[in-house]
Design a protein around this nucleic acid. Structure first.
Lengths: 332, 332
DNA sequence: CATCGTTGGTACAACGTTGTAAATCCGCCG
DNA sequence: CGGCGGATTTACAACGTTGTACCAACGATG
């Protein structure tokens, strides 16, 4: 493989001159520039990024830590982050944690400044003190979950408000026994969505019914099906369900269908995330639609700012827009 | 950030001795080893991978070129490739091409040997001569599509046989007017699945009906819905459809439902890929289920072999197993 | 006691790149 | 024609790591 040295020899100039041409330095005699460019072309020279970054003290890589690419929300988000990063000539290294604290801690501690310039993390199980323990020494931007007390940049939507809007929608349809699926003792996001749920009930003068709030350990389709099955077995089942993500809602849809419960007439369902598949489920799913592209862009921009500006900047909290996508799981 | 030099100073030994400890070299005096290990721990030393790889002549990175992470099949596959790569201490760089030849060519030509040790590619639009033009000079493993005449390693399933089994299943249910959705003029995979479709019809003595074979430019849900809508508008609609992937099938399911066509009684549907969502669609989708984990592992193993063995090895073609997953879209 | 082999340790160079500082070139002014 | 100043180029060092070659200490062997 051709190096600067090879090109230099071929063009009859010094290594540095070739480097200057490669890096677009202005003052190179036209004739030499031409010779170098020909040599570059004929050798098919590609810079050795490792060496370049070693020299520059940068790596050119961004880390992206997320639970699982096979989860549609994260697959879609990762794709958008890749695109946003590419616009700034960053390569992205994706690390899957499967949502376990163990692996999230490992990943966090492995985020040496040597490998990446910064990371976008979407933790599910990290605790506040994990950040103190492991302080990875590179700029971080956190998505979604807002672990309290950790002073790092954050991008997300207003979960409380989004949940409130979702539940208000159900209330506006005349539903009164509204369940929630997805409560979780540790997840901050779950707490926020639950808060929005409760606040919407309250502002409508509805009394919360504790047994209609179901936990979900993981947010997969199976968990949603399980929870819905449970709800349908209650003496007085709900007439609507707000699921904390679309996968739970899809699972709930299936469990309802299996028991012959009609959606939306017997049971209205709202999801959260607007996965692509949710527009095609039967019935199609009403859901909170975060602007995922905006999230990806905001995260990459925050990281750029932080890498340029250093650690003395105040942590920023960017709220990205969202909308309620009304489909057939609430209105036939 | 701590370097070997820092650790060496702290431990009172030479840089190389620290390097030896880090790399598990045997002959280090227990006392020194202990001192070094303490120094390593107290500085939180992490090797600079760029420097290490510069020295070693390896990069520690794998490339993974695919159309889009938001497509469930590729999201799932990417997750599995990441896991397989991690077992061999490789980091994975993902590049999205959106399935365009332009971007696939760009990616291929950017695969300098400096950035990655090898790449797993899943091309959709590349031509044979693109490989000759761009010859990226790093080991490649191709997934899925088998562009003819290119002598590189390949992992995939027997598409002809898989399609045949899918269509045989429909025939065994008594279906006689069996449509196909997903024909495509350039995609080799499409041609193979079409071949399997035809061969299954033929072995059952069924006469192929050309207007029941529908093309799909892209393999998204919308394309499946569009094709199914078209089929249902025929004077004599089919009684079964074999879709060349699950997304097409999901779209077809929806179009059928919208027109009140019952699946499977009026119309049986079979997909291909076994996306996670397909187990939860209504009705759940009968589909060809490739062993995606096996594909990921095989691809990484082929790459390891090729990186170790050099370019003089014969290109290998690994066929991974698959099964027919029978669900409610064919049998209620 | 000289020699040897083994164990433990070090100095130095090199990987490919770029910043720095210094060298060279050239036109032009006085 | 000496010298000035900008344009252009170059040598050199350094980024952090590891391979190579070499050195030192030591006990064992003859």
């Amino acid at each position: 493989m051709a190096t600067l040295k090879d090109v230099a020899k071929l063009a009859g100039v010094s290594v540095k001159t070739v480097s200057n041409v490669v890096n677009g330095y202005d003052f190179v005699k036209p004739e030499n520039r031409k010779r170098v460019e020909e040599a570059l072309a004929s050798t098919g020279y590609r810079p050795n990024l490792g060496a370049r970054n070693l020299r520059r003290g940068r790596t050119g890589f961004l880390g992206l830590m997320l639970p699982e690419l096979s989860i549609p929300y994260f697959g879609e988000l990762a794709g958008l982050v890749l695109q946003a990063a590419q616009e700034h000539e960053w390569n992205v290294l994706i690390e899957q944690t499967l949502g376990t604290r163990e692996r999230e801690r490992n990943t966090l501690s492995a985020l040496g400044p040597h490998l990446i310039d910064g990371a976008i993390i979407s933790p599910e199980a990290l605790h506040t003190n994990d950040f103190e323990d492991l302080a990875p020494g590179v700029p971080l931007v956190m998505l979604g979950e807002h672990v309290v007390d950790v002073p790092i940049d954050h991008v997300g939507i207003d979960n409380v408000q989004a949940a409130r809007i979702a539940v208000r929608h159900l209330i506006s349809l005349g539903r009164r026994r509204i369940a929630a699926i997805g409560a979780h003792p540790q997840r901050h996001t779950a707490a926020q969505r639950l808060e929005g749920y409760h606040s919407a009930l309250e502002e409508a003068g509805l009394v919360p019914i504790p047994e209609l709030v179901l936990p979900a350990l993981r947010y997969h389709r199976a968990n949603g099906a399980e929870a819905m099955t449970h709800l349908l077995a209650l003496p007085e089942p709900p007439d609507a369900v707000f699921c904390f993500n679309d996968l739970l809602a899809i699972g709930a849809l299936r469990a309802a269908a299996e028991r012959g419960v009609q959606v939306p007439s017997d049971m209205a369902i709202v999801g959260f995330d607007n996965n692509e598949e949710s527009a095609y489920s039967l019935p199609s799913l009403t859901t909170i639609a975060p602007d995922k592209a905006a999230i990806a862009r905001a995260a990459v921009d925050l990281l750029r700012r932080r890498i340029a500006g250093g650690s003395d900047l105040e942590p920023e909290d960017v709220q990205t827009p969202f909308s309620l996508e009304i489909r057939n799981s609430t209105i036939a």
